[in-house]
Design a protein around this nucleic acid. Structure first.
Length: 650
DNA sequence: AAGCTCTGCTTTTTT
DNA sequence: AGCAGAGCTT
């Protein structure tokens, strides 16, 4: 691999902890993988390196790149998300961590528990925070390593008179979770960090495992994750890579002070900067640079294109999002007809729902696409139904799973299901036979409840068959429950196929809980050359030659929900910055006035178009020199064909 | 106690 | 438009 001077300095850095501040497109991934290879070639033991990434996808990509460069030795390098890593270590030390047997639960399950405890604390007819808000707030506090009381003092999110009951609610949530043997995402980090800092022997052991810890997307780490890094370092050296201009996860507790104060927090650490952009044309970077210059914050960042010049970004206005979608799809087809690959195109949306119109248009024109960051396959209701049935067999104590499974049956509602679940939970010596017998006596006119479970249990050691048995057992129930069953049923076939890749059911369940496979990844298994539809958040770390940024309009950037909170608005700016800097050769921003026809949904401008001056809209006043504009679905006249310098060696 | 209907809200973003 | 939660009817 070739590197420029600053990249090489980072890759070959010796002695001491290092933070690499790498702007968008400056070869961040390249540097991390380069560093890993450099260490291995220099004699480091691959299994004593640790690669921590922010998403599972990033970890997989990193591994793939490593494998390409150094072959099978790449397999020995532990790489994964913080959550993944912590959980694996905890599982490996069951004596130290009492949590070893715990079931990992996802957000849906958290909500389920919170809903149950919330009902007990809410006074009739009172406005009380939704379960989702309660989960969000407690989660944020834990990731920020502060107590809920401190959080409430600082942000005052609730009315005075309900604070006491919110706290009680949170306490109940914890108790209930513990009693059922559940561990949520935050528990994974929290328990690990607690032990790491509270138990000298454990810490010593963990510190002895690694020589180098390499961290990707450092700006998105939260205080809890920083604590984990601080606990693991020395003698292990930290090599962290990040870009504060791309910090977009503050809503989840990420704190870019972990980047700004790196040298204070990690004594002896040094900082290196990467500034040459190898990804985009200068025209695309001009827009990105302008965006940051408009900010009241000093990012002190100006991206310079190594590759040279290309066409200006285009900004096209449409009457409605349908027109917008139709135009994008038409443009895609034109490019494809002219010989471009579908895979070179990425459609970036602010939020899942804002991609819907485009997705519909893609489907209509039968353009192959994958959707990254959208609705996750495993969150689809019918998939959860099947998974919960399997969880019932896995654990007699899995209250959430039992509730969900039992209430699928006719004549069984919350009450009946709850009492059945508690009978099961209190069963002394719960052998499978006893469980089934007890259940048989409880389920009255629904013998199917037990029969299905028995079939799953008898195929337990063959994941594929077990999952297939669960699907078959529920087929009739689910068909009655969901409209458009044919379409949904296909998801279950996928589920069965996915399960075949796992050795045990437990491994299958855990993988899904921790890394919910998006339907897109499933799509990728089937379709190689396809357009990528992706949220701006998921797009971080990726790139494509041609990018469309849909609904780049007022109300989206900044998102209306962030108005009134300066920090949140600034984060929104960075989201837009991330989106813009994904494009290599060509960037098209599209927007519509969001006019709504009465009775059809709601829009940001229910009273009709109000122009583009709405509340702090970031793209108000982009200099004409920076973008080409166009309206009404008519694209701008083709921009002067810019010359893109071919990839230069880096 | 179950299950239906109505209402009102929804839409950030993800491990 | 679609869904979750609340309340009403059976």
């Amino acid at each position: 691999m070739d590197f420029n001077d600053s990249q090489r300095a980072a890759v070959e850095h010796s002695g001491g902890h290092l933070l690499v501040l790498a702007g968008a497109g400056t070869g961040k991934t390249r540097v991390i993988t380069g560093r890993t290879i450099h260490l291995i070639r220099g004699g480091a033991d691959p299994s004593r390196l640790l690669l921590l990434t922010f998403t599972r996808r990033a970890a997989l990509e990193m591994k793939a790149r490593l494998k390409l460069e150094i072959g099978p030795a790449a397999e020995e390098v532990p790489a994964g998300t913080f959550h993944h890593f912590c959980l694996a270590r905890m599982r490996a030390m069951p004596k130290a961590f009492g949590e070893a047997g715990h079931t990992v639960i996802d957000r849906d399950d958290q909500l389920q528990i919170m809903r149950m405890v919330r009902a007990a604390h809410r006074k009739k007819g009172e406005r009380f925070p939704q379960a989702s808000e309660l989960v969000q707030v407690t989660s944020f506090a834990r990731n920020s390593n502060i107590t809920l009381e401190q959080y409430i003092d600082r942000f005052e999110p609730f009315e005075e008179e309900i604070v006491g009951r919110v706290l009680a609610c949170a306490a109940d949530y914890e108790a209930r979770k513990r009693a059922a043997g559940y561990m949520d995402f935050d528990d994974i980090l929290f328990s690990f960090a607690l032990k790491l800092h509270g138990d000298g022997a454990v810490r010593k052991h963990l510190q002895g495992l690694f020589d180098h810890i390499l961290v990707d997307e450092m700006q998105d780490t939260n205080p809890l994750q920083m604590l984990i890094l601080e606990g693991l370092r020395d003698p292990a050296l930290l090599f962290c890579v990040g870009d504060d201009a791309q910090s977009i996860y503050a809503f989840r507790g990420a704190d870019f002070r972990n980047v700004h104060r790196f040298t204070e927090m990690i004594p002896g650490a040094r900082i290196l900067r990467l500034e040459e952009n190898y990804r985009s044309s200068q025209e695309i970077l001009d827009l990105a640079n302008w965006l940051l210059e408009e900010s009241p914050l000093q990012y002190g960042r100006r991206l310079e294109a190594v590759r040279g010049h290309g066409p200006k970004p285009a900004m096209l206005d449409f009457d409605s999002d349908l027109d917008e979608a139709a135009w994008i799809v038409g443009d895609l087809m034109e490019k494809h007809d002219a010989g471009a690959r579908w895979a070179d195109h990425m459609i970036i949306a602010r939020a899942g729902y804002s991609a819907r119109a485009t997705e519909a248009a893609l489907i209509e024109k039968k353009i192959p696409y994958r959707y990254v960051g959208g609705t996750q396959l495993f969150q689809a209701a019918h998939v959860k139904d099947v998974l919960c049935m399997i969880r019932c067999v896995a654990s007699i104590l899995d209250e959430i799973a039992w509730m969900r499974y039992l209430t699928l049956w006719p004549g069984v509602g919350d009450r009946t299901a709850a009492s059945m679940a508690s009978e099961l939970a209190s069963l002394a010596d719960p052998t499978p036979e006893r469980v089934m017998r007890l259940l048989g006596s409880l389920c009255g006119r629904n013998p199917g409840i037990v029969e299905g479970l028995e079939r799953v249990a008898s195929a337990w050691n063959r994941p594929r068959e077990a999952v297939a048995a669960a699907c078959a057992a529920l087929d009739e129930r689910l068909e009655a429950r969901y409209p458009r069953w044919d379409a949904r049923k296909r998801d279950l076939e996928l589920l069965v196929r996915l399960s075949a890749r796992h050795g045990t059911i437990e491994a299958f369940l855990e993988t899904y809980a921790l890394d919910p496979l998006t339907s897109s990844m499933v799509a990728r298994l089937e379709e190689e050359d396809c357009v990528t539809l992706i949220t701006a958040h998921s797009a971080k770390g990726t790139e494509a030659p041609v990018c469309y940024l849909v609904k780049a309009e007022p109300g989206q950037y900044p998102h209306v929900r962030s108005l009134g909170d300066d920090d949140a608005i600034e984060e929104e700016r960075r989201v837009l910055y991330v989106a813009v800097t994904r494009a290599r050769d060509q960037l098209t921003l599209t927007r519509s006035l969001g006019r709504v026809r009465p009775g059809r949904g709601w829009g940001l401008f229910p009273d009709g178009p109000q122009g583009y001056a709405a509340d702090g809209y970031f793209l108000t006043g982009v200099p004409a020199a920076i973008v080409e504009t166009g309206t009404g679905g008519k694209p701008v006249p083709p921009a002067s064909p810019g010359v893109i310098v071919p990839w230069r060696s880096r």
